[in-house]
């Protein structure tokens, strides 16, 4: 017993080092798997407060590009209104039958990373604004990611530029679905896998979100096909997708809540039993 104590006291520095290094290592390994509720993340009041205090200064630097984005979106919406009102002028829509399926909540990006293999964003909306895990996050141009952790006032987003991210996507021209992943190389290019060889694809085709997952509504833009090749050992294509969004410059986003998610989840659970 005496010897054990002596050993501990003699090597206390090394033992403390091992302990701390072990903790750090286990947290690192935990962060390599998808959606393990993490203890260390930027959705808390300390980091949120600091980011919030400095984002006031930071946003002035991107004012010009954010204005250009807004103008572009306004233009898009305006042209939609013009076309919409002409077609549906005389059709009476009974609002009691058309149920709202998705709700969107605007949020501001407090921090954004895109140079690491696992990238996250921090937003200034959290549980208080009824944001929960697995809500989708988009901009006016296309998708950004999925809500990962939430605290009272802040939330983190698992960016599509993250090794762990896999998002259901499809071709706009046909209904071939695949999953969207990232090979960590360029923040402008993501990879679309598992598109069957039967699909007719061409460079420049648009990729949109598929309706299979209950996170995003069907038809949110993702990007265009930059290049593609046949998978060496299968009947699928490997497609490089150029994103609509400039992930390196994101100021404002919309969080998408699927209002039917509870119903869908219970239905799926019933199926499993």
């Amino acid at each position: 017993m005496q010897q054990i104590f002596n050993f501990v006291i003699r090597n206390k520095t090394f033992l403390l080092f091992l302990l701390l290094f072990g903790i750090a290592l286990s947290l690192t390994i935990q962060s390599h798997s998808y959606h393990r509720s993490k203890f260390i993340n930027s959705a808390n009041s300390i980091t949120g407060g600091v980011y919030g205090a400095f984002s006031g200064i930071d946003q002035y630097f991107s004012l010009k590009s954010q204005n250009a984005l807004l103008l572009e979106e306004n233009n898009k919406l305006r042209s939609q209104i013009f076309n919409y009102s002409n077609e549906t002028d005389s059709i009476l829509i009974d609002s009691s039958f058309s149920k709202q399926k998705f709700r969107s909540i605007p949020a501001k990006v407090y921090s954004n990373s895109y140079s690491r293999p696992k990238n996250y964003l921090t937003l200034n909306k959290g549980k208080r604004d009824s944001i929960k895990q697995d809500f989708g996050v988009i901009t006016s141009k296309g998708i950004v990611g999925i809500i990962d952790n939430t605290s009272n006032g802040y939330s983190t987003v698992l960016s599509i530029l993250n090794e762990n991210s896999a998002i259901n996507a499809q071709l706009k021209s046909s209904n071939q679905i695949g999953s969207l992943r990232w090979n960590t190389i360029s923040p402008y290019i993501v990879q679309l896998e598992d598109i069957s060889k039967f699909a007719n694809i061409a460079i420049g085709d648009t990729i949109i979100t598929g309706g299979q997952s209950s996170i995003f509504p069907k038809g949110i833009g993702i990007g265009t096909i930059a290049s593609f090749e046949e998978n060496t050992n299968g009947d699928t294509y490997n497609i490089e997708v150029k994103l609509f969004n400039d992930m390196t410059n994101i100021g404002h986003v919309f969080i998408i809540e699927n209002l039917d998610i509870e119903e869908i989840k219970t239905l799926e659970q019933n199926n499993d039993e």
Partner: peptide, 8 residues
């Protein structure tokens, strides 16, 4: 790590 969401 906390600020940059990088695990440990």
């Amino acid at each position: 790590d906390m600020f940059s969401n990088s695990g440990g």
